[in-house]
């Protein structure tokens, strides 16, 4: 009894540690005073001003668009790579996995500067495109690592059975293999989207002047003082995702299964 209480307290403390800054930001979004160190009373004016702030809205749009496109393209490339995986020789599999592991294990700063050097020497203009290419690059491994375990569990006989029963390759893929892989593909996409959304370092080195994502916008604001509208925007995003996750996890269908 004492032991489980101690364990609960420990877990609770870690969660407080991980969520204290998030809670702080939420409180600050309602702070009437512009400086973050003083509480000036409750207000929702930052939420109203947020939608009139064109710079922040543009950065938000860039962030979401890059996250969506990079996650989508990475999901496509990652998934078809996994499809090939079962047909490869063992040594080629190792090479493929090694390649996928490089951006995950390498330091973000090194990935960032290496891509910056590449774009400079290829003469690609720094901007939306370079950020997108960089994000696809670091997103592909997350998709592969999330689809591959599903691929390994896949029973090849079902695909062959579909072929025997008269499906062509495409039909067999979309009716048999794809539904089996779908949970892995979706979680890979979500992972990639989240990673892109939260990235700062690689975007910092691959962005050009005149384009900002939320991360780089916040970075330039860190030294001058962050605009309170930024707090309200993050609060909205965070609460929206939280509600979405709760809805997904606690749908009536799930309750029956439990």
């Amino acid at each position: 009894m004492i032991k489980t209480t101690a364990q609960k307290i420990y877990v609770a403390l870690i969660f407080i540690f991980l969520y204290a800054p998030i809670f702080t930001l939420m409180v600050l979004s309602f702070n009437a005073s512009k400086t973050r160190s003083k509480w000036g009373g409750f207000t929702i004016k930052w939420y109203k001003q947020l939608f009139q702030n064109e710079e922040i809205m543009e950065a938000l749009w860039n962030t979401l668009l890059i996250a969506f496109l990079s996650a989508l393209i990475a999901t496509i490339i990652g998934t078809i790579t996994c499809l090939a995986f079962n047909y490869l020789k063992k040594s080629n599999r190792a090479i493929l996995l090694g390649m996928a592991n490089i951006p995950m294990l390498n330091a973000e700063i090194v990935t960032g500067i290496s891509l910056m050097l590449l774009f400079i020497s290829l003469g690609i203009k720094f901007g939306f495109m370079t950020i997108l290419l960089a994000h696809i690059t670091f997103n592909i491994p997350y998709v592969i690592l999330s689809v591959l375990p599903r691929m390994k569990q896949l029973n090849p006989s079902t695909y062959e059975a579909a072929l025997d029963l008269g499906c062509n390759q495409w039909q067999a893929f979309f009716k048999v293999t794809f539904p089996d892989l779908l949970p892995g593909i979706l979680s890979g996409f979500l992972m990639a989207f989240t990673m892109s959304l939260d990235d700062f370092v690689i975007t910092h080195f691959t962005k050009g002047p005149g384009i900002d994502t939320l991360s780089t916008k916040i970075y330039t604001e860190v030294k001058k003082g962050i605009k309170p509208e930024m707090y309200s925007l993050s609060t909205i995003i965070f609460v929206a995702v939280l509600v979405l996750l709760l809805l997904v996890n606690y749908t009536p269908k799930d309750k029956k299964n439990k």
Partner: peptide
């Protein structure tokens, strides 16, 4: 979930 609140913030 925490990642949806920007890492810099």
């Amino acid at each position: 979930l925490p990642m949806w609140m920007n890492f810099l913030l």
